[in-house]
Amino acid sequence: MDRNPQKVIEDQLLLQLKDVLLREDRVALQELRSNLEDPVQLEQRVGPLIEYQLGMLRSNFPEAYYNVVDKMIQARLKVSQGEIMDTIYPVLGKMIKKYVQMQFLVLREELSAQIYLTLNTGLIGRIKYAVFGMSKRDEAHILARAKTAKVDEVFIIEQHSGILRGSASRKTSIDSDLVAGMLTAIKSFVEDAFKSGNTDLEKITYGNHSIHVFNYYTCYIAVVVSGQLTAEEEAFLNQRTNQFGETSLLNILRSKSDNVNLLLRNKLEKVYFFDDQEFPIKSRNAK
């Protein structure tokens, strides 16, 4: 702090000057303060102002805020794609979401296949192989490729009651009626326990097997697959199943035939077991 006597005097003069100059303002300030502290008075004075501002905001919103909101949305889109996907999802329908997911998967697989090829063929690959032999990862990759996924069984099951309407199977498993019943029970349980909108159970995976569930109004199709499906194969399975589900299936179920069971089996065999061997789901075969 400055102890200079000259400066102290100056400061005092300055204070007096301020006092003289600001006296009027002080009175006004006092008034203002009392206004502020009295809620009734405050309300009376501020209320109309807020109303007015709100009105302005309402009528001028687009012009005044368009840019800001636009920027906010863009920023938000960047950080929370998943969240937005969830919000849009019920509106656009799950088919679109599925399609988008599938496209991402296909893309990813193509990319990793590309990277794998680049890393393992050509000079680098050959040197790696010559020096280290085949790595565990390479082995796993090749094995996974070699083991083609295939459809083992297909069930057409009535929604809710779990009654089996038809099935085709490449191997004899336990009683298909029971499988259909238990599958429906599990499906009911899952859909009931995690109910959120119209979410249906779509896939169950266990070990190297998966059950793909396709829902229609009165029935659902359960496709049991062994082996790992590539995204491309899964897309193909979905496409093929939906094609069948939306045409032949409905026709057969609507027909008053006594042999719905048999008709369905024949059709299912054609749709899923089109290859003599172990009806693999290779899109190449059908293209």
């Binding site: 929604q159 009651s161 029970a185 349980f189």
Partner: peptide, 8 residues
């Protein structure tokens, strides 16, 4: 769960 009863 209500769904268990459906279709019976």
């Amino acid at each position: 769960p209500r769904t268990y009863f459906l279709g019976s």
